[in-house]
């Protein structure tokens, strides 16, 4: 392959050492399974470390081919490593997918329930007022509100307790999806807060509305401050 600028360390090593590393990495790449972006990131990481290891052996006085051979031997059998990497990549991808889907689902449930309740023909305030309210409607509304609020609160607490420190590498499409989702949830929370407005403040009976609005805002804040980390765009270092 051409010693392009994409590959880390391509220009630093003698040609013989470089070719030995590339041959080693090609075996590793052949055995890797999983999302391309993660595979490329992994290859970059391994290549950078192999280059440093080779450089260290070179500095110790070994010849280029010998230095590269020692560095790759330290790394281990690439076919065996590919299997272990494959497991790790699959776990990472599964983890990432479930977090993204979970976040989307939680906020979408909140959003659509809010739209459904907020857009009903009767204002919520009237529904939850004791006088003149249909008991079955009241129970249904309160029940649904409780389920939504509890689900959202549980999700928010779980995210804060377990998700806050876990960075999740997301690609461009997932970032767009999350940004759109956050905008929708944020707008609906603001719209609900505005529509409830003075009535919420004036009437403590409208607990379901205010709690839903507050919960929506809480979920929005949690999702927004979750350290979604942008995975750097990386081309295959061997291409």
């Amino acid at each position: 392959m051409a010693r392009g600028t994409q590959a880390p360390g391509a220009q630093e090593l003698p040609e013989a050492a470089w070719h030995a590393l590339v041959a080693h990495l090609k075996v590793l790449r052949r055995g890797l399974r999983g999302p391309r972006r993660l595979r490329n990131a992994l290859l970059h990481e391994v290549l950078a470390d192999l280059v440093e290891a080779t450089q260290t052996y070179l500095d110790c006085g070994h010849g280029p081919a010998d230095a590269a051979s020692r560095a790759t031997r330290d790394f281990g059998d690439p076919e065996v490593a590919a299997y272990s990497f494959g497991e790790a990549l699959r776990d990472t991808a599964r983890n990432r997918r479930s977090r993204v889907i979970g976040s989307l689902a939680a906020s979408q449930v909140l959003l659509w329930c809010a739209i459904f309740l907020g857009g009903s023909s009767e204002p919520w305030l009237e529904r939850v007022e004791p006088e003149g309210a249909d008991t079955s409607d009241l129970v249904a509304t309160l029940g649904l509100s409780c389920v939504v609020v509890m689900a959202a609160l549980c999700g928010a607490v779980a995210l804060l307790r377990h998700g806050g420190r876990i960075t999740v590498e997301v690609g461009r499409s997932e970032r767009v999806l999350m940004a759109g989702n956050l905008t929708l949830v944020g707008c609906s929370a603001v719209a609900l807060a505005c529509s409830a407005g003075v009535r919420v403040l004036a009437a403590p009976g409208s607990l379901s509305v205010s709690s839903l609005v507050l919960t929506g805002c809480a979920v929005f804040v949690v999702l927004a401050r979750w350290p979604w980390r942008r995975l750097p765009r990386m081309a295959d270092p061997l291409d």
Partner: peptide
Amino acid sequence: LEGGTLYP
């Protein structure tokens, strides 16, 4: 340790 063990 081998690198193939460390990274995963």
